[in-house]
């Protein structure tokens, strides 16, 4: 049987995580290829519905990567994201989707290696959890 390769959506803030991902690339760092990056102007732009849609459409994991606390270009966007991620985790937990599938990370644009680390960490975590229950139950893999 083929090893399970998770699909992970990463909402990355343009000021930090996205730049860090870029840097990781320039530094030719190797990291798990399971991450699909979605560029956002600030993690404060991420709403509950965006995370839910990712899960609904078959993502095995969702990560939201914003600036270090205190370093948001819009002052408190990353704190808003933190609260929303917590809210979604709770909702998902209550309908039987593992909360660990969704996580918030904070890093700066200079942290290319940290981005690679997060990508690997999240991939490992999701591999341990296995495929999303939505994919397991009626395996509509081709729809994803």
């Amino acid at each position: 049987m083929k090893e399970f390769e998770p699909k992970i959506i990463a909402f990355c803030c343009q000021y930090c995580a996205y730049a860090a991902a870029d840097l990781a690339g320039s530094m030719r760092l190797k990291y798990a290829p399971n991450i699909r990056i979605v560029l956002v102007p600030c993690t404060g732009r991420i709403d509950v519905i965006h995370i839910l849609r990712a899960v609904e459409n078959g993502a095995d994991g969702v990560l939201v990567a914003g600036c270090l606390e205190g370093g948001c270009h819009f002052v408190e966007g990353n704190f808003k994201a933190k609260n929303r991620v917590r809210y979604v985790k709770n909702l998902l937990g209550r309908i039987g989707i593992e909360e660990e599938r969704v996580e918030m990370f904070n890093l700066s644009s200079a942290e290319g290696p940290r981005f690679a680390e997060i990508a690997n960490e999240m991939t490992e975590r999701i591999k341990t959890l296995g495929p999303s229950p939505l994919r397991r139950e009626n395996s509509t893999e081709e729809n994803i």
């Binding site: 519905i49 839910l52 609904e56 309908i95 989707i97 229950p133 939505l134 139950e137």
Partner: peptide
């Protein structure tokens, strides 16, 4: 829309 998505996820999980 949030509730809609949540219900779809829950029901999809139940198959």
């Amino acid at each position: 829309s949030v509730l809609g998505s949540l219900l779809r996820i829950a029901r999809k999980k139940e198959g």
